[in-house]
């Protein structure tokens, strides 16, 4: 496995406050990493800075060995569109498009594959996430879980090599959370790396590695290895103990 994303001495300041301090980490191809920490510790800021959605104050970020911190906004947009997928706490779908149109939109925008292929891919993704029946629905007429599934389909329409997820289950109930996490697991199994920010220990316990942030610094990391359903409970206990040690 090679390094997909390399972060060196990343710092971010907001109006004089240092939100991220000297963060260095690397994400391997196909790795599933969760980022945890208390509110305001800089989890979301880290996610946005390593995905190039925000500009770091200092430090360098390499994606597929290319320094993205040195790229122009247009170049960065193109990488985000083609190689990165994003899922947010709110589904953040475009309100004037149906579920299906929201899903195909990044594919059409990229234009690398034919529209027919993109539509076929969208059909597959919707089938896997169980939203085929409601594909033509207005986004205001479906549940939060269904919206989040559509957001996942959208994130994967261009087959990205990494998925950034910011509290993707934060607004969902436990049943919906489980379904979403299962989808994440499947996607990861297919080779996409995942960087997921969460408050939920159970969600984090699905990751191979958990990073704990405190006051903008990386305090510790926990390696859990590949997720297996039968070992779920042990992972969650281990996770819980570790978090307790971290003072979470």
């Amino acid at each position: 496995m090679g390094t997909l994303l390399q972060v060196n001495h990343l710092c971010k300041q907001f109006e004089g406050n240092e939100v991220l301090r000297e963060i260095s980490l690397s994400i391997q191809v196909g790795e599933y990493v969760a980022v945890m920490g208390r509110s305001g510790c800089g989890k979301t800021t880290l996610l946005y800075n390593i995905s190039g959605m925000d500009r770091a104050t200092r430090g360098r970020v390499f994606f597929e060995k290319k320094e993205i911190t040195a790229l122009s906004e247009e170049e960065m947009s193109s990488i985000r569109l083609e190689k990165m997928g994003f899922i947010f706490q709110k589904s953040n779908l475009l309100k004037n498009l149906s579920l299906r149109d929201n899903i195909v939109f990044p594919g059409f925008q990229l234009g690398k594959e034919s529209r027919r292929e993109i539509n076929k891919k969208a059909d597959d993704l919707m089938k896997r996430t169980g939203i085929s029946q409601i594909a033509h629905y207005d986004i205001r007429k479906v549940s939060g879980g269904q919206l989040q599934r559509a957001a996942i389909c959208r994130a994967f329409i261009n087959t990205p090599s990494i998925l950034f997820a910011d509290e993707p289950t934060g607004a969902l109930n436990s049943a919906a959370t489980k379904e979403i996490m299962d989808i994440f697991h499947d996607i990861n199994q297919e080779g996409a790396a995942i960087v997921l920010v969460t408050h939920d220990a159970k969600v984090a316990a699905r990751a191979e590695r958990v990073i704990y942030l405190e006051d903008g610094k990386m305090k510790d990391e926990l390696r859990l290895g590949k997720f297996r359903e039968e070992k779920k409970l042990q992972r969650e206990i281990k996770m819980s103990d570790w978090l307790q040690n971290m003072g979470f």
Binding site: E73, E74, S77, E82, M84, L94, K95, Q109, L110, R154
Partner: peptide, 16 residues
């Protein structure tokens, strides 16, 4: 703004 921000986040270029 939020709709534009979503597209920007997805990787739609400022030019587009």
């Amino acid at each position: 703004a939020s709709q534009i921000a979503i597209q920007k986040a997805l990787g739609v270029s400022v030019k587009n």
